[in-house]
């Protein structure tokens, strides 16, 4: 993320290429994601014209990207740290239903509903995190368990309390404006602002603050990281709390926006977030990736997901494009990572 060209280390040869050379840009984790985004833009511009870049078209994929991106970044951070969280798929309806039951069904203050929703998000994250660090069970299995457990809780409790699988919620005033409204009376959701602000915060936290380094070290070699004095257990729990709270947040905002919550839905976030993260250049086994890459990956996914509406293709083909895109992105990212590992060695040989 730092792109200072002036600060060469001591002893660096002047002949060395600048930090902003094409090669060094390609070696960044987000290079593949950026090229993938360009490819998708060209593809849809060629087949659907530039409609999806006009305000109405843009808001359709920006809304998708914003809802997905808020979840994809913490999921990606967990992946960089060597963990997975698929329970986000249950946390979205859980967040939506919690706020709808408290503030809609029982008619209590919306702020109470928001506070309880966030508290539930933190709780599930803590449970996930503790189970992962206390047992040797892989986080995929732990969160698979919590995915189903939370789904069961949402369905069981909602039907028990409301005798229905859909709960209405009406929100007015500042809570509506802050969490679930359209910007400037248009089609762009306020979620887009949340997404951009959170992305900026994550970029700072991961790539500029010293603690970001710890996450990469954890994914690279957990034992060495612990020996180097990094509180790996605490960091793991914090990351799980972030992902499940973010998912609950997205669900809550959707309920406030659409004035209702359903027990189903949300499962699509599991695969969609993983696709965004992997297309964004994060190494599935951890230790490598970037927030900007995940950001690009999310946009790429959202454009494919929505762009199909602006072409003559049948909507049913979009999954095919996403599948091919994912494979291409992974191959490209592997190539760039190999370049990152070897390129400088060759340059030094001269």
């Amino acid at each position: 993320m730092t792109s200072t060209t002036a600060s060469r280390p001591v002893g660096a040869k002047p002949a060395q290429g600048s930090n902003l050379s094409l090669g060094s840009l390609l070696r960044r984790p987000e290079a593949g994601a950026f090229l993938g985004l360009l490819a998708v833009l060209i593809f849809f511009a060629a087949f659907g014209g530039l409609t999806f870049l006009k305000p109405a078209g843009m808001s359709s994929w920006l809304n998708v990207a914003a809802n997905l991106g808020i979840i994809a970044i913490p999921v990606g951070l967990l992946m960089i740290a060597g963990e997975l969280d698929i329970s986000v798929g249950a946390m979205v309806p859980f967040g939506a239903m919690t706020v709808a039951v408290i503030s809609g069904h029982y008619g209590m203050s919306i702020w109470l509903g928001i506070a309880v929703t966030m508290a539930f998000g933190v709780t599930v994250g803590l449970i996930n995190g503790y189970m992962v660090i206390r047992t040797a069970v892989p986080s995929l299995i732990v969160t698979l368990g919590s995915l189903f457990a939370v789904q069961g809780i949402v369905l069981g409790l909602t039907v028990l309390i409301t005798k229905s699988t859909s709960v209405a919620l009406t929100v007015d005033g500042p809570a509506k404006v802050i969490f679930g409204d359209f910007l400037f009376g248009g089609q762009l959701q306020v979620m887009v602002i949340w997404w951009l602000v959170l992305t900026a915060a994550y970029v700072f936290f991961i790539h500029f603050s010293p603690k970001g380094n710890w996450i990469f070290a954890m994914g690279g070699d957990k034992v060495s990281a612990r020996n180097a004095g990094i509180p790996t257990d605490r960091m793991t729990i914090v990351l799980f709390v972030l992902s499940s709270t973010s998912a609950a947040f997205v669900g809550m905002c959707q309920a406030i926006l659409y004035n209702s919550a359903q027990v189903a839905g949300g499962q699509s976030f599991i695969f969609n977030s993983i696709i965004s993260v992997v297309v964004g250049g994060v190494l599935l086994t951890g230790g490598f990736g970037s927030v900007v890459g995940i950001f690009f990956g999310t946009i790429t996914f959202a454009i494919v997901n929505q762009g199909i509406y602006y072409t003559d293709f049948d909507r049913n083909w979009s999954a095919l494009i996403i599948g091919v895109l994912l494979l291409l992105a992974v191959l490209m990212n592997n190539t760039f990572r190999k370049m990152a590992l070897s390129a400088t060695t060759k340059k030094k040989g001269a």
């Binding site: 280390p9 010293p210 990469f216 190494l283 990152a340």
Partner: peptide, 28 residues
Amino acid sequence: GTFPLMSIGRSFFVGVEPTKGWGPFKIY
């Protein structure tokens, strides 16, 4: 015991990263 996908500088200082800046905006 080093991290293959981290830079030399970052892996050297894992856990004791040098920072500049102030307050909550201390950066690596």
